[in-house]
Design a protein around this nucleic acid. Sequence first.
DNA 1: CTGAAAGCGCTTACAG
DNA 2: CTGAAAGCGCTTACAG
Lengths: 346, 346
Amino acid sequence: MATGREIAQLCGVSVATVSRVFNQPETVNEDTRERVLRVAKELDYRPNESARALSTKQSTMIGLVWDTDHRRPGWRHPYLQDLLIGLKSALSAHGYHLLMLATSGDAREVGASLADPVGYVNMTRRHHLGGLVLIDSGSDAEAFESFAQSGFPCVALDVAVDGPRATYVTSDNSGGAREAVAHLLGLGHSRIATITGPPGNQPSDARLSGYRAALRDAGVEPRADYVVAGDFYRASGTAAVQRLLALDEPPTAVFASSDEMAVGALLAARAAGLRVPRDLALVGFDDIEIASVVDPALTTVAQDKPGFGVAAAKAIMAMITGGGREEPVVLPAKLVVRDSCGARQG
Amino acid sequence: MATGREIAQLCGVSVATVSRVFNQPETVNEDTRERVLRVAKELDYRPNESARALSTKQSTMIGLVWDTDHRRPGWRHPYLQDLLIGLKSALSAHGYHLLMLATSGDAREVGASLADPVGYVNMTRRHHLGGLVLIDSGSDAEAFESFAQSGFPCVALDVAVDGPRATYVTSDNSGGAREAVAHLLGLGHSRIATITGPPGNQPSDARLSGYRAALRDAGVEPRADYVVAGDFYRASGTAAVQRLLALDEPPTAVFASSDEMAVGALLAARAAGLRVPRDLALVGFDDIEIASVVDPALTTVAQDKPGFGVAAAKAIMAMITGGGREEPVVLPAKLVVRDSCGARQG
DNA sequence: CTGAAAGCGCTTACAG
DNA sequence: CTGAAAGCGCTTACAG
């Protein structure tokens, strides 16, 4: 691959001039500029990224922290692929690449595990990353917050962080949940239960508060036994419905904090001989692919998955360029009415 | 972050010695080595990756070519997330990071688009990548092959390439398809149709040949009108079944080359008033999450998705270390019998 | 076993 | 407008 020196020799200029042509084109004479450009194009010259990063202390890479250790709970939410695609595409448009950082599985660097914020800072420095995008895998919130304080640009997904150049993007979880439950209320239900995610998980907590707000709006008395905790995954939805059905006064409708749990709930209802939505109405959250395929098709609150990635890319680019912090982004979460809630039946 | 120079000063040695401690520890005196190590640990020293890559011409990154341009057909196969997780985890274990390269969407570098192999080579050189992992998005096969010839380590997924340090990993597509169709034959079907992927797509072609082999084994005459081409996506499965049902002698069983198409087929059968598997038996391929959730649950040929990633990581690390080419990896594809084929009914 | 030196390929003040 | 020089932080022959 051609180097700047070769271009320089071929054009009879110094390497400094070649460099200027690409970094401060306005400071170089038009004739020489065009000559350099022409030769560079002929030789398909591109500045070496390692050298550039070493010199400028700034690479064209954004780091992605996503702990895929299979012992961690949240590593494989089914919408991460869409999110990743949105993120990568949007970053690409700015000429940035996405570096998926090796995480704690990394045997060779136990001490430098990404599990702690020091690890994040180190990685960012060593690779001269423009910043970090942080995906929560279940219990990284404190580490994320701590990295956010470091001053490096960073945007966290679905976990609130604050720092001089930090922000986050999340869905309107409480609003979406509220709309979902209001919809159930509107269909005549008053015995509405909810299956939450892991307590402490921010989106889950927000959805729970949306559930409560909707009940309050409608003047429906909340019942503690109608709130059962799950972990976002399918089996916990099944278990939750089994518990709810065992109640003296079982609910007639269930709002699940994730589609996976809603599917689990569906399975439990079916196994108990109940028909959905006739005997039990169901609403989920996420709108993953399964939601529309299951029978009955799941009414759910849709999250804008690629939008997460795009928003994250936009925010981090803005912080790299601008220097200040960006406002948190709250994406709309919209109710998608299908068959499991009963709105479509007679 | 501490630099090698600081460590050197603190230890009263030269930077060369510090470097040696990390790269050729056996060549340095035990006492000084331990002194350096101790100080390095205290300051949490890590060599700067840009500098290291510039000097050694070898980074600790593997590039991933995955064109997510939404105009491309194959950008979002539903199992890519699992594959990615397997790949990243296995690479992490070797201390390597995964660089998701900006692709043709990259507005700033139209000329350097990854669409052509020159783009791949350039990227590899500029970032001193250890090699490339190539995911086919529909029509990259020639570009991949051409990159493979360049001599840089590379492993392609589901497309055969050859080169001095190139190999690929794929599933036993023909074997899996053969087993699926044999199973249908065993259940008494003889009018078995198939829905293929895009003609020319290697896995699809292999599955088709497996289908044919199974028929041949059983002495069943193949029929041209029982082979209809799809594109791996759902809608094409629906359209295919509509066509098949319009035949004078419609099939009693269908083998679809992907689960997505099988789901589309299921929908079409249902819409036509047919019950699956009673009126029409169905087998898919992939075993994506949807397969087990759909009703009836889909009998399908399971691919080892994380295994793809792990095998790719293993192969590329071997080629980086060893220098030669690796044998192609063919992962087992196993029939998973559920409800859509009729084996479980009376 | 260890240090001084050169080099990896670029960028950016500093002179001119 | 342009070149010479220094520097980014590391590695690796080359001497000693």
